[in-house]
Amino acid sequence: MRFISKEEISPLLDFPSLIDRLEQAFQGNYTIPQRHHHDYDNPNADRESTLLLMPAWEAGKHVGVKIVTVSPENGKHDLPAIQGLYLLMDGDTGTPKALCDAKTLTVKRTAAASALASRFLSAPDSKHLLMVGTGALAPELIKAHSAARPIEKVTLWGRTPEKAKQLAEELVADNALEHITFSIAENLESAVAEADIISCATLSQTPLISGKWLRPGQHLDLVGAYRPDMREADDDCILRSEVYVDTYAGATKECGDIRIPLEEGTLKLEEIRADLFELCKKEKTASRTAETITMFKSVGHALEDLTAAQLIDERLPQLNEA
């Protein structure tokens, strides 16, 4: 069994390939048990931490499980909020094949899932992306959305302007993004109004995006706010948008952006237009027009992890040759 580090994973999971592979996986025959989601007390922090256990398998091929902790206040320790490992095993013998850095795998597959949704939901000529949040997911979401749509301009917004500027400098230095111009948003409302796609990846407990700011034709991608008491978008976003999710089971139970509007009656279950399984299988289609505002809520799914790990395993000979 080999440990696959962050530095090794990144070049193996290019976004065009990973997005295509996810689309195939959401049409495929996998077994995905309900993930374990456990919040646990952290006496040294003001907020609870979370333990996630996410198993999945493709019969006769691979079995995988991700073990992840989410500690929202890890910034004060100069540590990432998300940490963990992904174990990939042979589906026939059960023999462990690879142990992967789960944080890198997670940010890659999460960003790819948002880009996959964007293929179905955003305007094909979307050129301006607003990235709300400056954490580990932000650069990956920018790269993934740029692989799905002809992004030419990216505006960055963060609670701490210094972090947004630092992120912009890192992105400018990335040769893969040399065709994109970057700018820093001082006012979030104005930045939302100007963008074609708004992608949010924060740990906000109160809505950052107001539906009143949205304009026809936009696509809102909500990736953060992973707990039932966290939200990135307000009720007006729900009321003005066609709502899509990665999975019904996860989105309706685990995240406040969908669960709270459902509990309060702002959103009805039958008003959620489709999940990624239905879109990829073409069981449902997005009826986008120039007036449509679409909203996609992602909470993550074990199928995405297994698919990324399988692609890593398939490309391991590249590492051996190097």
Rank of each mutant, 00 (worst) to 15 (best):
L51D: 02
R231Q: 13
T93M: 03
A148N: 15
L220M: 06
L208F: 05
E23L: 06
P43G: 11
T106I: 01
P124G: 02
R35F: 02
L13D: 09
A56W: 00
E7N: 14
T202P: 13
L88A: 11
A25W: 08
S10D: 14
R35P: 04
E152N: 12
V70T: 02
V68K: 00
P33M: 06
R227Y: 09
K284F: 03
R240V: 09
D90E: 03
Y244T: 12
D313I: 00
D46K: 13
Y248V: 10
G256I: 05
K165V: 12
N44G: 12
D14S: 15
L276Q: 05
F3A: 09
V154L: 09
Q24P: 01
P161S: 05
A111C: 04
P96E: 10
P216E: 07
T289Q: 10
M89D: 11
L99M: 14
G133C: 12
P72I: 01
L18V: 02
G84T: 15
T93Q: 06
I180D: 07
S71Y: 03
E264T: 04
A164L: 12
D41L: 07
D41H: 12
N175E: 14
V299C: 03
A176E: 15
V65M: 14
A136G: 02
I4W: 10
G300C: 14
L306E: 04
T292W: 11
T252Q: 11
A290E: 13
M131I: 04
